[in-house]
């Protein structure tokens, strides 16, 4: 079964894309990604530019409405995701607990619909 682990992190300690790129390889995230790869469960994943770079688009009653910033203004922000292939939800939760974001923000675990 595929699951997406959505990383919610504290508002950006990584103010620029370069910072995000650096954090991707830092000790914690690097070690976690390595563990996923070594266990053969990693399918994919990306890190995103900080949320202040987001632009949100809506069409309300046919009228386009754009605004700067993320869709949800929450304390933690959507910073990236991992796509993993594991036998069941229990295994996915075990990997989510190891995700560095779990200790500082939150990790949302969502099963992926297979077509």
């Amino acid at each position: 079964m595929q699951f997406m682990l959505i990383n919610y992190t504290k508002p950006s300690p990584d103010a620029t894309a370069d910072d995000v790129a650096a954090a991707k390889d830092d000790e914690l995230w690097g070690a976690y990604t390595k563990a996923l790869v070594d266990a053969g469960v990693l399918v994919g994943g990306e890190a995103l530019h900080p949320s202040h770079t987001a632009t949100t688009v809506r069409i309300i009653d046919g009228v386009k409405d754009l605004h700067d910033g993320p869709y949800a203004d929450s304390k933690e922000q959507f910073g990236g995701f991992y796509l993993i292939e594991v036998p069941d939800l229990d295994a996915a939760l075990m990997w989510a607990a190891r995700n560095p974001a779990a200790a500082t923000g939150a990790v949302e675990v969502r099963p992926v619909v297979s077509f």
Binding site: E27, L28, A31, K34, A35, L36, D38, M94, R98, A103
Partner: peptide, 21 residues
């Protein structure tokens, strides 16, 4: 050490492993 850090789900244990590394 990286494998152990990546597999840990406990912040205090992770801090120890990082200090050792």
């Amino acid at each position: 050490f990286d494998s152990a850090i990546g597999l840990s789900n406990d912040p205090s244990e992770r801090a120890y492993l990082m200090a050792e590394k």
